[in-house]
Structure formats: C-alpha cells, structure tokens
Design a protein around this nucleic acid. Structure first.
Lengths: 234, 234
DNA sequence: GGAGCTATGTTCGCTAACGTCCAGACCGCG
DNA sequence: CGCGGTCTGGACGTTAGCGAACATAGCTCC
C-alpha cells in the first residue's frame, strides 16, 4: 500500500458544502489503520465512526462454525458505523481492516450529535446506508448463485475501486476467507483469471492487467453495486 | 389464512405513544393484500409504504439467470419501504405478497413528511432499518453455509412468528423459490422435518407440531435475527 | 366418477465445492 | 548461503445440491 499518491478525501464528505465539511472535519482525527486490525467486534458498543481515506474496511458476518463471510467493503466511497446513523450503537458485523492506510475517525457520540445538527450530512449518510443495504442484498444473492471465479473477479474490481491502484496486496488465504471458500478454490479461480491475462499475482501481490476483461469475467453484481451507488450519489 | 383472530396491530406502530399512533393511522388506509401480488418491482418508484397487520411480504433480490433469492421477510413486526426512511425512493429488492391479509398503507410522500415531523416514528423506523440490515447480512451468511434443512426450519419459524398461527399455506415449489434451491431439495428437507415429527404438511398446508424441535433443527441464524430485533425493540 | 390440474415423491447422472494432506516455490533473515 | 516461514499449486476421495425427467397422489369441477 504505497501511499505515494495520497488521496486525502472521502467521497461522502466531499459531497458536503464547504463550510459543513469543514465543521465535520474539525470533529475528526486522522488515524492510520493497519492491516488485520479489528475496528469492531460484535458485542461491544460502537465507539467511533470511520471515513476511510486510503484504508479499506471489511464487514464480516460471523457464522457459527466458520470464519464468517464478508458482506461489505468500505473504502473512501463510504463510511463505517452505519448503525449509528440509524440510532443504534451496536452492530452484528465484525469490522476488520483489510487495507492499511489513513482514515478519518470521529467519536460516536459526537457523530450522533453532528448528524442531528447537520441536515446535509444526515442526508448523505442516510443515503449511504441505503447503498450499504443494497450491497448486502446483492452479496447474499451473489454468494448463493455465482461461481467462485466470477465472485473473485467482482471482489477484485470492488477492491481496486476503493484502493485506487492497479496493484494491491492480498493473499489467497485472505481472499478465501472473504469469499467464504477454501484457499484451493481461490488458487484455481485466480489461476484461471491469470491464464486469461486479466490479472497477475505472486505472493500476495495482485496486479490488475485488464479491467474490462475482469468486468466481463465478473458477475453482474458488480455493476448492480455501482448502479445502486450511482442512483443516490452522482 | 383464516382471519378468525384478526391481529389488527403492527408492532412498529404499537411502539408509538397513543396520540402519535393515531396521527399516523389517520394517514393510512387498510388494504387487503393477496398472495403473489407484486407490491414493488425494481425500476419503479416507491409509491407506498406498508405496515402489515396479517399480511406477509417477501423481499427478493433479483439475480440474472435465476428466480432470485428471498433476503427479507416482513410481517406485522416490521414495514415495507425502508429506502424511504433513508431518503431514497427506489429499491433494488422486489416485494411480493407471500401471505394474504390486511396491511396499512401510506402514501410515500406523506410518509416522508410524517417521519420528518414525527420524531418518535422516525426513531422507530430507523431502528427497524437496522434490524432489516442485520437480517440481510445474516441471510447472506446463512445461505452460504447452512444446509437446506436448517434453512427451511429457520424459514418456517420466521414465517410462523409473523403469521401468528400454527398452520399456514405454502407449497414446496414456493419454498424452493424463497430458499433458492430446487423443489426436490425442499421435498427432501421437508420430508426429513416431518419424519422427525416437527412439522406436518400436505398440499401446501403446513402445520408446525414442535416449535422447540424446529428451533433445534434450524441454524443459529434464527436466534440471531430475534436477537437483533430484541436489541433495538423491547 | 372420471378428467385434469396441482402438489408431492423418486430417480438418474453430473458438478462445484468441500476437507485434508503434501509438494514446490519464493522470500527474508541470520 | 542455507533455514524457516509464507505463499501457491495439486492430488486424493467426499458431498450437497443441480437439472431433468418421470411417477404418484389428492383436490376440484363438471
């Protein structure tokens, strides 16, 4: 995660008028999130909300007898802490840092006050909650019906969109965890995508060679996610 | 669906103070929803919100090349129209009437005005949005990891909770659609549950004989859903 | 009381993914 | 340079669920 080109913005906050954005930023602090850090574990109370700048956060639903399943991915297009938007201070999803990098952090209580006062911010995060909700539903269907290879392609595209780089770092082991399949399954799918010339990887370093081709290899769920986002922002 | 004992309440509206409830009820009309009726199809604009009294509404995520997958179930414990709560007037989920019966209906625009004015109502529907979100995530994991039999048991329990009756009407064909499996798969799972003495069915008429046993046969997702609801209401 | 529909039950071979285990390949570190 | 950890690649046999087709059983309606 070379922070060579720092993208020091978050798209949700970008959507705010200047003075309101400044007010919100004043209430945040920049923190560096490190890979595999657990931002939230079910059972606790949500202490902060996070607006990733470069960081990447995975939302994982715990399932008894398995390592869980990733159902959401948060980069600088979104935020972590949706339940607070809905007036609830807990969550059933585990939040893990999947890509190191900077994020803006705000105290939960302050965030709640802020959205109460700041109508625009409230509207923006409400809409993002809708996007999140749509992604959850899409992921449910995708996981049920689509083959590992297509799901992997979707995942790579989603991640790339949030990482803003052609190359990023993920091991197959980790991918297997996220997709809820065996590592061997990822090896096969990744091998296939590599043979097609769409990606190139070695020892946890993945390079996207052909985004267009990757889109073709992915299921329509990728497009559906983008459409949901676009339908409320942009 | 014998409306012998009419449960003419909706738990969300019940949570409101009397005078506010009355105000909301004044803005609604009672409608009779009939089986298989499509309340909403993606691409349209949300015209109404529904607060089921006896009716049961399925939320289905469309998946290209399949009949889709049920990801949400709404009875008198909830409402249909969550996106409007979040300031969005479309949805990516198809809404189909799964159990005939009465529901309260309110015009979308009026609902939006109402939640703007009525703070308590807004808080309640926000929290329900959280529950909905948790259920989506849970369903994603459940569908991925759990066997048809356990998922069927969960579905039966969830439905019974919302139908408030030991016997209700669902064909195996329909169940297959909801669970996203073949009808044959449902036949086998249902046969198994029947052999265990947990349910009894014939020609679309299902009777729950042993709720406790059914809970044991179901995956923990059922309990997780209840817990999510309980964590914000009651 | 048959005709016809709908719902349920059963069978076939097939496949994507599973769990497990081991082999190679690469990298950094001492 | 070699050692040990991490990452990737393959090889078993197993399994839940698939798709398609066919067989029965119950209800309804004339």
């Amino acid at each position: 995660m070379a922070p060579s080109t720092r993208i020091a913005t978050n798209r949700l906050l970008d959507a705010l008028p200047v003075h309101e954005r400044k007010r919100v930023l004043a209430g945040t602090e920049t923190v560096e999130l490190t890979f595999a850090e657990a931002l939230y574990v079910p059972g606790n109370v949500l202490g902060h909300v996070y607006f990733p700048l470069e960081a990447l956060i995975s939302l994982i639903v715990p399932i008894e007898g398995s390592a869980g399943l990733e159902v959401g991915l948060v980069g600088n297009e979104g935020m972590f802490g949706i339940p607070l938007v809905l007036g609830v201070d807990v969550s059933s999803l585990r939040a893990v840092v999947q890509g190191s990098g900077a994020a803006l952090r705000m105290d939960a209580a302050q965030f709640c006050k802020e959205i109460e006062r700041n109508e625009t911010l409230h509207r923006v995060v409400d809409r993002y909650a809708f996007v999140h909700l749509s992604e959850l539903a899409q992921t449910a269907g995708c996981t049920r019906y689509h083959l590992v290879e297509a799901r992997l392609a979707r995942w790579l595209l989603m991640t790339q969109d949030r990482v803003h780089a052609r190359v990023f770092h993920v091991t197959q082991e980790f991918l297997a965890l996220m997709l809820g399949v065996r590592r061997v399954g990822v090896t096969r799918a990744a091998g296939s995508l590599q043979n097609l010339g769409l990606i190139q990887y070695s020892r946890g370093r993945i390079t996207v060679l052909d985004r267009r081709g990757l889109k073709a290899a992915a299921c329509a769920c990728y497009g559906a996610d983008l459409a949901a986002y676009a339908s409320v922002f942009g």
